[in-house]
Design a protein around this nucleic acid. Structure first.
Lengths: 354, 354
DNA sequence: TGTTAGCACTCTATCTCGTTGAGTGCTAAT
DNA sequence: ATTAGCACTCAACGAGATAGAGTGCTAACA
């Protein structure tokens, strides 16, 4: 039994219908409302075949059919029509650009909001892993007589700060000199290069009279560790999912929301995209459908991810989570648009000011 | 008909039971399991009285009674036993203290987490309104040839930063001088004092050769507006509510969660505590029960709020949201403990480093 | 040989209806 | 004033009965 054109067309129609209604689709419905030109009996036979081949399943004997994960897989890989965003959707994207002057994490956060509003699903973004990022500047800013602020800025525009106590009676000029020396020693290094050994080396290389401020070096090591380890996760529209019948059970809804609140799980999920899921020629779009995802909470959901870049370096992941019957074509189009927009904004943000 | 001691005792017992079970309480249950020493028939009469007086209600004719909002009100005002935290609860509070070295918003965030874990309800905290806060320091830190970071630190330890573009070819020493001048002009002023007029005044007072950097002043005005307007809201344990039968309907759950996501609504709610709700001698604890709250989403919930301070200045609000049948005594005890702890930590953080 | 009409069959969803049991209110006895 | 007793009410539950959507199969048809 082979998957001929007619079978594909029927499958395609069924999936489209199911995406809209979330109700099992019967042969009669296909024959009447969809433009196939066959009787319900014929459709019935074809549907039986499609079920045998694993593309459809039946919730129970006398219900219609719903697509299986395998069915969706075929759908996203070769069946579905690709989609262009509508004018009104595009218009609402304009707002994102206005944030160009803000900081990088605000832009990313905003992108998550836009995506979730645009799609009515849940958007998830991760900020870049900074291992290979370079330090742009380090500054020690005195706040008052007894404390100062360490500020670290990376090439990607990420900023991190920490307050440190100064030994009593430290002279301000002294702090400034130390700050200048720090900057000289550290700027340009990538975060990977700043190991404990490197810190010790700097400590030795400094003149002895900075000894008073040596504890500050430890704080700098801390803060760099923070930046290095830190992958922030922004989620938006988590509650959108509660509007879909798939999540009408509160307990499952809770599980899903708790999962989204757990940063580590989300990062892990976003980074785990599989080779099987990547859509050729889509610019790095990756889709995992239902059980293709190992996580229990995701068995009824799908996730579509994309990378975003500055220049040619991957900065992070954008993902959209929806029920398995989510509207793949539209969602993919929106995801592509937003990630492209994000690329452009970050590029301008990053390159222009370089 | 008056509310004698026996009626009070019965009401007290019923409310305690209902808080545990979330099921209507019948006269038989009260007579058997609770230590009153009266027959179910007598209890029945008393319960009928209590209903007539408005302290109890009946979901339907042949169900038991549940407390009304008025019943809860009486309960929290004069019936309930006050509660001490258990040893194990206290032990888990120890962890909060370790964050002393972190920044103020991390501490506040952590406090929300601790509270929600401790109570199994939803914790909400607001950060202070900064109108009367003073500026501790302002710094303009060059990042590269074309951009710099404005950094603003207030007396409360809040830090805010923004990246600005510099005119091409700006000299670094020049930036430093400008930065020093800024600091001199602005530090010590409260945020309220820095009006548009004040900014113009500073602009005029500066030597003309800083003209190039005048646009930076506008950014400073922006950033100060941000700090002034900004009341951050931290929420923790939002999904805890989904475990209670009161929220078993997904639609209501969604409404509640959406409400929590809306910063403005939450701030408004936290600030709207009423005179009727404040518990005398409890150190500023305020309770609003069910319909005492105007908000639709809160009709089935109660909120207990407290203020927290640095020294004698109110910094913000802590609130715990639960179903109306929440365990008031325990929750109040925990809220008091955590806000006291918060006060102490902030006091140390703020005063020690001053 | 592929398509279709027809029909018996299956299974869920929904409704009704009786039953159960928890709880009440009232009355009469203590 | 309290309590035992009893009739009454009502939600919850389960057992049929019914409707209807949808299927699979067979036989007729082009």
């Amino acid at each position: 039994m082979d998957l001929n054109e007619r079978k594909k067309k029927i499958l395609h129609s069924i999936i489209n219908e199911y995406i809209k209604s979330a109700e099992p689709i019967g042969s009669r419905h296909v024959a009447k409302n969809l433009d196939i030109g066959l009787s319900s009996a014929t459709i019935r036979n074809e549907m039986a075949d499609l079920e045998e081949m694993g593309y459809l399943e039946q919730p129970h004997t006398s219900a219609g059919r719903i697509p299986s994960d395998k069915g969706y897989r075929l759908y996203v890989d070769s069946l579905m029509n690709h989609h262009e965003m509508t004018v009104s959707d595009l218009a609402s994207l304009g707002n994102v650009i206005e944030l160009q002057m803000g900081q990088i994490d605000k832009i990313i956060k905003r992108a998550a909001e836009v995506l979730s509003q645009l799609t009515n699903y849940t958007a998830v973004l991760t900020t870049p892993e900074m291992k290979r990022g370079a330090i742009k500047t380090v500054e020690l800013v005195p706040i008052d007589a007894s404390s100062a602020l360490i500020i670290l800025v990376t090439g990607e525009g990420v900023m991190k700060h920490k307050r440190v106590l100064l030994p009593a009676g430290t002279d301000i000029t002294f702090v400034h000199n130390f700050s200048a020396l720090l900057r000289e020693k550290l700027s340009g290094l990538t975060l990977d290069e700043i190991t404990a050994a490197k810190i010790s080396e700097i400590r030795r290389a400094m003149q002895a009279h900075f000894e008073l401020l040596f504890p500050v070096l430890d704080f700098i090591a801390d803060i760099i560790d923070d930046v290095r380890a830190e992958t922030e996760v922004y989620t938006s529209g988590a509650t959108n999912m509660l509007a879909y019948p798939e999540y009408s059970d509160v307990r499952q809804a809770k599980e899903f929301l708790d999962f989204l609140n757990d940063k580590n799980s989300v990062v892990k999920m976003l980074q785990a995209d599989s080779a099987e899921g990547s859509i050729p020629g889509s610019g790095g779009i990756n889709i995992r459908i239902g059980k293709e995802n190992e996580l229990d909470v995701m068995q009824k959901s799908s996730i579509i991810t994309a990378n975003y870049y500055v220049g040619d370096q991957v900065m992070g992941k954008v993902g959209i989570i929806g029920p398995t019957r989510m509207d793949y074509p539209k969602t993919i189009a929106k995801l592509q648009r937003v990630s492209a927009l994000l690329n452009r904004i970050l590029y301008e943000f990053y390159i222009d000011e370089d």
